[in-house]
């Protein structure tokens, strides 16, 4: 009877003193290959490992100029990772052409479903590199469910070396390398590329298209579609 009483008292005390575990954030990459650099008119590659014993509720990404001045800013709350205890956060954030070059602060805040928060800060730089290869007028045609057609104007002042197109869902992945002789070494090329999706199951797909020039510089463009 005495043991029962002690257990009851302790359980009562324990309940009041529950310590919640905070979410964890480990930023793996800011910029391609964790270069800490993003280019204007391109994308900031952001990759992080997130853990939350209390399951993720939302992830906020905040980018502001490091100093106080006019500059580019980005604030977005991602809820697509909600419910996960362990998430691979991978997003491409478009950096506009008119983004002011300079040092920027990135803040990532993960909130779990109990309201516990963890935040991590990191710095990166925005650089305007006019010699960077690029794709303009890009269009992803998904009207044919068994064929993905990507079109766009590929430009590289140092000459085009090739393209790498990755199509990925949780169940299906294809990587296509395009070194079409008619395109390689050109500075401008009107691209039309078809990718066979006949074996791809339904789902949400990510498409990463990398254009690489003859000096090895590359720009990555990210797209999404649902099949």
């Amino acid at each position: 009877m005495a043991i029962l009483a002690v257990t009851l008292i302790l359980s009562c005390k324990k309940h009041a003193a529950t310590v919640r575990e905070k979410p964890g954030i480990e930023i793996k990459e800011i910029g391609l290959d964790n270069s800490g650099i993003a280019y204007t008119n391109n994308e900031l590659h952001l990759d992080a490992r997130l853990t939350a014993a209390g399951r993720i509720a939302e992830i906020k990404v905040q980018i502001t100029l490091a100093e106080t001045n006019y500059g580019w800013d980005f604030v977005k709350t991602y809820t697509s990772y909600a419910g996960l205890k362990d998430a691979h956060f991978h997003e491409h954030i478009a950096v506009p052409e008119n983004a002011r070059p300079g040092k920027y602060s990135l803040l990532m805040v993960v909130t779990d479903q109990a309201g516990e928060k963890t935040q991590v800060k990191a710095n990166f730089e925005i650089v305007r590199d006019l010699s960077l290869p690029r794709i303009t007028n890009a269009f992803l045609d998904t009207s044919n469910t068994s064929m993905l057609r990507f079109s766009g104007l590929v430009e590289a002042t140092k000459g085009i070396s090739g393209l790498i197109i990755e199509v990925q869902s949780s169940a299906w992945t294809r990587t296509v390398t395009d070194t079409n002789p008619a395109m390689v070494d050109q500075t401008r090329f009107q691209l039309i590329k078809d990718i066979d999706l006949s074996t791809a199951p339904g789902g949400h797909y990510h498409v990463n298209i990398s254009v690489i020039d003859k000096t090895g510089k590359q720009a990555v463009y990210a797209y999404h579609f649902d099949k």
């Binding site: 905040q62 502001t64 100093e67 001045n69 006019y70 500059g71 604030v75």
Partner: peptide
């Protein structure tokens, strides 16, 4: 914003970070 950052938004093309 978080971390005591703030954005001043007016008719300028870009926002002012403070």
């Amino acid at each position: 914003l978080e971390d005591n950052k703030a954005l001043f938004i007016n008719s300028s093309a870009t926002n002012l970070t403070g």
